[in-house]
Nucleic acid binder design. Structure first.
Lengths: 215, 215
DNA sequence: TTGACTATTCTTAGTTC
DNA sequence: TGAACTAAGAATAGTCA
């Protein structure tokens, strides 16, 4: 049959659609590669077929390209004021909720930068702020940090006061005891002060030390 | 001049490269759109020119497509055990560091899901866990939640104890006082109990209420 | 930079195996 | 599915405006 000009609309026949997808997808990826090579451009391309399968191409690191894309497009979001941090609530649920909210905001603010830099302490975080961030981002970051300070300072002040009030501290042997029952928390504690959380039938995860509850 | 077959390598002439970039870029975006329409595929494409300018296309929400891509490619990271949470340190810096670390881990775990779901409390977070997550993700999430519980419970217990020890609470008029000096924290407080943080010469941001320090 | 204008090359719809 | 074929479109290198 003679080839016809086709209309650009969803192909009805499932098989014809799959064949066309396969052919045109290859064509698209080839064109992307050629453009990248010819013009020294960085390109990221991902395609999900109607069945959900992923095909992707990137001229350099996909992760980096996505970050770069996020940074160039999220500027518009930064004009917003961060939501109000609400101290003074001491319920488990409220504190968890605040942590989740701040997590989301930090994520929105920094994109994926933290992950990439292998950030392992606050000093490095502050370097990021002084370094590559735009003025708006710095301003927003400063606000976020202030609120973060507020949360952590509140906690540390409480702990200091507590420690003061309860001195002198007593030492207990918690080995084998069940320390917490709430939530998903650790049910067992070893005699050298470690807390373990059972994950499944044959593994436990070390959660931390008991020193915090010995004040 | 007669058209020649071209070799796929970087075009030397800057002007020729720019012209080709412009032409082929359009061709590529058109092909991407056509493939998306014809075959009902979701496509995200972004191109950075050699001068750094971004051109992008996505058949549906770019954010969602990037998330979907992240989810399909980050599975391999989830086998790792989360790093140990270290309670018992009460310095400002240590607490900030822990919050940052947990933020990073939550981000790695959930991808961008939280943002998309408009998550606004812990109940919804738990629904996510019960819902679409794979078994590995659920396991990892459970560990993360346990550690999160540990941090928040530690805080809430301290606060409860504190409140008990200091009862009955006194009420003060903090208006105009400087409450905290450390970090980036709020320097001014209004007479209706709000704390403000100066951001620059002409704006302040409301950080929260003073109720937390009235215990 | 941005449009046109070809002559060519490239892509692919329709088909067969 | 996938590969091969082929003629009809589509894209585009080179050029000029």
């Amino acid at each position: 049959m003679v080839r016809q000009k086709i209309e650009i609309k969803k192909i009805d026949s499932v098989t014809a659609r799959q064949v066309t997808f396969s052919k045109r997808r290859r064509g698209l990826f080839k064109k992307a590669q050629e453009l990248s090579t010819l013009c020294d451009a960085d390109i990221a391309l991902f395609v999900f077929s109607s069945t959900g399968k992923l095909y992707d191409y990137s001229s350099s690191s996909m992760v980096q390209l996505i970050q770069r894309h996020n940074q160039q497009t999220q500027k518009s979001k930064l004009g917003q004021q961060p939501s109000i941090f609400r101290p003074g609530s001491n319920s488990h649920a409220m504190l968890s909720k605040q942590l989740v909210e701040m997590t989301i905001e930090l994520k929105q603010l920094m994109g994926e930068d933290l992950e990439v830099l292998g950030m392992d302490d606050l000093m490095k975080l502050e370097k990021v702020v002084e370094g590559g961030l735009s003025p708006e981002r710095k301003k927003y970051f400063r606000v976020w940090m202030a609120r973060c300070d507020f949360l952590t300072m509140q906690e540390s002040e409480l702990m200091e006061e507590n420690a003061r009030l309860k001195q002198p501290a007593e030492k207990f042997d918690f080995a084998g005891d069940c320390v917490f029952q709430q939530g998903n928390l650790a049910e067992s504690i070893t005699n050298n002060g470690f807390i373990y959380c059972p994950v499944d039938s044959d593994t436990s995860l070390k959660l931390g030390y008991v020193c915090c509850i010995l004040f």
